[in-house]
Amino acid sequence: MSNLGCLLRGVRAGGHRSRLAGIDVPETIVVTSDAFDDGGTIPVEYAGKGLGDNRSPALHWSGVPHGTEALVLIIEDDDVPLPRPLTHTIAILDPRTDHIDAGALQPISTEIRFIKTPLGQGYSGPRPIPGHGCHHYRFHLFALNAPVPATVTTKGRLLRSMSEHAIARGTLTGVYQRP
């Protein structure tokens, strides 16, 4: 067990500090996974590099409203010992899709547009600090009533666009604790 993880065990960003918390739209989208239930443990194969296969889980959703022009998937770790949750993945999806296959959130995908995060592009699975305890990973899916322009290449610009165009959202939560 890491001394640093133990020392920081009580230090957690919290979902209320996420910049996504300020996007106040109806939660009408239902996000599910065959890999884990909402609030359940994320299997180790979906954990990040050095722990698991860093393979994205399959995701499914329903309840996307009529008039959706883009879907945005953002995966965050709410329990990282930072001022805000850590963004692991940002993906812009075709509004007609209703699922992502396991392993599909890879930067080589031609059907998914990624925005770079502090962890890179594409899927970056759970990899909490050893000894820090259980972390909550939120898979947020937003429906937007306008396409995301190609000029939007940063998280900040994307969030500004989302705050103006988000019309619905859904969240799936998985937990992971480093062995």
Score class of each variant (00 low, 15 high):
residue 102 A to F: 07
residue 60 H to S: 13
residue 69 E to M: 06
residue 147 P to E: 11
residue 165 H to I: 00
residue 32 T to K: 10
residue 118 P to E: 07
residue 5 G to M: 05
residue 130 P to W: 03
residue 113 R to S: 13
residue 68 T to V: 02
residue 143 A to E: 02
residue 145 N to W: 02
residue 133 G to E: 00
residue 73 L to C: 04
residue 173 T to A: 08
residue 174 G to S: 03
residue 74 I to Y: 04
residue 103 G to H: 06
residue 52 G to D: 07
residue 7 L to T: 10
residue 156 G to H: 13
residue 40 G to S: 11
residue 120 G to H: 04
residue 177 Q to C: 10
residue 69 E to N: 07
residue 177 Q to Y: 00
residue 112 I to Y: 14
residue 29 I to H: 08
residue 59 L to M: 03
residue 61 W to G: 07
residue 117 T to Y: 04
residue 130 P to Y: 05
residue 80 V to A: 15
residue 168 A to N: 08
residue 104 A to Y: 08
residue 2 S to W: 10
residue 135 H to K: 09
residue 4 L to V: 13
residue 65 P to K: 05
residue 66 H to N: 08
residue 24 D to M: 07
residue 47 A to M: 01
residue 131 G to V: 01
residue 38 D to H: 15
residue 150 A to T: 13
residue 5 G to S: 10
residue 171 T to W: 00
residue 39 G to M: 06
residue 15 G to H: 13
residue 79 D to K: 02
residue 46 Y to H: 15
residue 34 D to E: 13
residue 18 S to R: 13
residue 4 L to M: 12
residue 10 G to C: 11
residue 8 L to R: 10
residue 130 P to E: 00
residue 141 L to P: 09
residue 3 N to L: 12
residue 124 S to F: 12
residue 154 T to A: 12
residue 20 L to D: 03
residue 100 I to V: 06
residue 58 A to W: 06
residue 35 A to G: 06
residue 103 G to I: 00
residue 93 L to N: 03
residue 140 H to K: 00
residue 166 A to F: 02
residue 141 L to F: 01
residue 117 T to K: 11
